[in-house]
């Protein structure tokens, strides 16, 4: 069996896996990082979104061996200790989650959006999130949360620049 090594949430990990092991399964089953969820088999729902080398990807559509040598961030690695990432905080403040199942992927995807586009319009947020399905919220409060996170991250950057 191939051996894979990668950095997950800042920690070096190395394990033997079958070639067919998906990154999502590797994270959930081998590393017990169960925040990454599986909601479909056709790469549509986005519950499994994580960052690989800083970019959001669907971990159910990537083999663990394809992420060999990469740096992976999951929802568990987003907060700094007890301090929620501004996106997480905004989801809580804006009631951007209900059952919580799509939330990890939704948050990871939204964080990637702000890396590209720090001040997205409503339309841009809605279009970016087309790969993340939420059945609970109707997206209204998710869009609100992403906008709030964008504002608060801009504020943080401005404060840091001073």
């Amino acid at each position: 069996m191939p051996n894979v090594s990668m950095t997950v949430n800042g920690k070096q990990v190395s394990q033997e896996v079958e070639g067919r092991t998906l990154l999502s399964a590797f994270l959930r089953e081998k590393l017990d990082l169960t925040g990454t969820h599986i909601g479909c088999d056709t790469s549509q729902c986005g519950a499994c979104v994580v960052h690989v080398d800083g970019k959001s990807v669907k971990s159910c559509t990537l083999l663990a061996v394809q992420a060999d040598g990469a740096s992976v961030t999951t929802i568990e690695g987003l907060a700094q200790g007890d301090d929620l990432h501004p996106m997480q905080a905004a989801f809580r403040d804006c009631h951007g989650l209900q059952c919580g199942f799509c939330t990890p992927g939704m948050v990871m995807s939204a964080v990637d959006l702000l890396q590209h586009n720090p001040d997205p319009s409503d339309r841009e947020i809605r279009e970016w999130l087309e790969g993340n399905i939420c059945r609970c919220t109707g997206y209204h409060n998710i869009v609100k949360a992403v906008k709030q996170a964008a504002q608060s991250m801009k504020g943080q950057q401005a404060a840091a620049a001073e």
């Binding site: 959930r28 990082l33 169960t34 925040g35 990454t36 969820h37 599986i38 999951t74 929802i75 568990e76 987003l78 907060a79 929620l84 997480q88 989801f91 809580r92 403040d93 009631h95 989650l97 919580g100 199942f101 939330t103 990890p104 948050v107």
Partner: peptide
């Protein structure tokens, strides 16, 4: 604000498959 959100937002929800 919801009490349950902290665990869901940090990937610590406990669903059956978890």
């Amino acid at each position: 604000k919801r009490k349950e959100d902290q665990r869901f937002l940090t990937g610590r929800g406990n669903y059956t498959d978890d």
